[in-house]
Nucleic acid binder design. Sequence first.
DNA 1: GGGGACGATC
Length: 839
Amino acid sequence: MSATLPMQISYPEQLPVTQRRHDIAEAIRDHQVVIVAGETGSGKTTQLPKICLELGRGQEGGVIGHTQPRRIAARTVAERIAAELGTELGQLVGYQVRFTDRSSAQTMVKVMTDGILLAEVQRDRDLRRYDTIIIDEAHERSLNIDFILGYVKQLLPRRPDLKVVITSATIDPRRFSAHFDDAPVIEVSGRMYPVEVRYRELTDDQTQGITDAVRELLTAGPGDILVFLSGEREIRDAADALRRLRPTRVSDAFEVLSLYARLSSAEQHRVFAPHQRRRVVLATNVAETSLTVPGIRYVVDTGLARISRFSARTKVQRLPIEPISKASADQRKGRCGRQADGICIRLYAEEDFDARPEFTDPEIVRTNLASVILQMTALGLGDIGRFPFVEPPDTRSVQAGIQLLEEIGAITSARRARRSKPRGRAETRMADGRTAVSSGKNATPALTTIGRQLAQLPVDPRLGRMIVEGHRNGCLREVIIVAAALSIQDPRERPSEQQDAADAAHRRFADPTSDFAGLLNLWGFVKEQQKELSSSAFRRLCKTDFLNYLRIREWQDLDSQLRQVSKQLGLSLTKTPASAEAVHRSLLAGLLSHIGMKDVDKRDYLGARGSRFAIFPGSALAKKQPPFVMSAELVETSRLWGRVNAAIEPEWAESIGAHLVKRTYSEPHWEYKRGAVMAFEKVTLYGIPIVSERKVDYGRIDRAVARDLFIRHALVQGEWRTHHRFFHANQEVLAEAEELEQRARRRGIVVDDETLFDFYDERVGPDVVSTAHFDSWWKQQRRTTPQLLEFSLDLVVQDAADDLSVQEFPDVWRHGDAAMPLVYEFDPGAESDGVTVEI
DNA sequence: GGGGACGATC
């Protein structure tokens, strides 16, 4: 390391963490894991890396890694630490987030998103480049944080030299301490002013409650008000009501601002702009952790939020509005009182608050685990059930994740392997030629070649699957563009005041049968304009066309990243434009359980596992709904919506989902014209009939039944036009026997069909299921046994009829010289019954 | 006709 540590590291006197820095240093020196608990403003985020530096860490032995849950935070934290150490960013202190790496060989403190650290695990299993890892904001319990906490836990014995510092809000440091075998907890006080909590249980609707609370706070003194709501619609309703509120005093005048993540950047920025008039900011959960609204003295908390939940039963993501936890409510409360005393009005009863759960469920118990399981399997972490999670996910969600990975062909599970080879040990032939052997019920799933590729692609497994298939179908270029678009936030903006104008601007790119094709159109437009326009003119164009410039850039950055990784994986980019069908077939490889069949009566779609979904109104397919669709995203809110969709041919799903489809057959029957047994095939994928009545050759489906029907119809009943000698000879023998029945006026002389069936069944080859099969078999067979299939009269005439003979019933009645033919018929009741002389 | 919280990546 060529960088040198500044001789003296100083700590801002006013920060609470500064008072405890010797205790913290001592704890880190004496323990492998230390928990530091403290509220925002305690200074832990910026000062901990400095304490570690002073302990001599981050120097010869390795780097001090410092993770943040958000990219912006990673950058600003690095900037602050660099500034406090009096160095330039990118030298002693650096940071890395996706697409941006500002760290160097001199870097001693590397701030990064937790996603970057996880990505590094794939290449550096023991995280050897770090001698210290600080996991900041661990209380947020994101999927990444929980995975890191588990990973670090099992890493500690292998890396006794590694120091780990977990920082958390003061809410529950003991949980982390317990996870790390009673690691010491150091609590650092925050710098907070007291916040008075007032409970104002709703008596009317929510909007009324909000306006009442705002009115109450307007009289409490100067300062801005932050209102927490569950979503965009609620924000709009409240904004409308608040704008109608006419303050009685001039000093009570206020402006209303909205704040949520999907808001255009310009609208978001208004919140941070300096202002004169008092403000009411209506916000979603973005304002709880991600964004800090300055100057807030008052908070109004509806106590509700949309929480993402994954249903292991329906395998669908849901976004229900739920009461928030105590921890979350306190976090909201804490958003005032950072600069002075504050007041927080909760629009629910105190008893309601008391009855709420302490903490929000960590993401790992609420989310689709496919990606985590894929990463863990790629890392060879073994049984998911034995991984040291702070809070293990439910077995059913683990199963659901495994099932999804099986759907996209990323893994072959032990279960499946056993089923396909019922005898002997479970063994699966892998696509790359390896053989995966699994012995027991808890055996870990085995990664396929596709799975290993997906583990390297920095996108959701479904999207990665599309990319792999895009390579196979010669349309990698297009599929990467689509997959990149699906993994970022929609670059199209729809400001509340100009929704119609925005929709009109975006409609130019729409394709009536595919939202994915619409994305490709948009991509083409953007590329073309960038080529022709100056960079500033392009930015202006983005504004007028309701496109978010930064998200367009992110889309393009991700496109290049995916191209690069694909290249490393040996996936080749196409130069020539691909057909729309190739692109959509590739997308479908990732969306097999997201297909739907139109229900004409109900105006919605029958989806996988009996679910029903509707096309989201913003989709180009909302108006004219095709018979079959696939949807990139299925999320249940007011109902289950398919957000980004395209029409598909159901047959595509049959070939791509060959490992998943179920086939049933009905009405096997003999077809005289074809000389074969046919049946109707029904093909379903997750219960969706993708083929309803396809006529198929049943001989290939069920040989025994088809052979049976062939013998009965073609040979026994004679429903066959053929020149085979035995066939005609047998017909004659039968005719003779039947004639005998007529003349003797007795039934039951001719043996029944079962006897004839048995005769053929014993002789005809086992593979003969149609006339064609018969012909080729008989061609060989008759050489050795030409009489094999010939009836004798003995065979076709019952034993009881032995004493009868056709001779006893003459054909002609002679009367003098005249010979008149006799016709026998045994049909009591009919006019022609008996013997008829034809004169 | 209808409309969805927030983050992150090899």
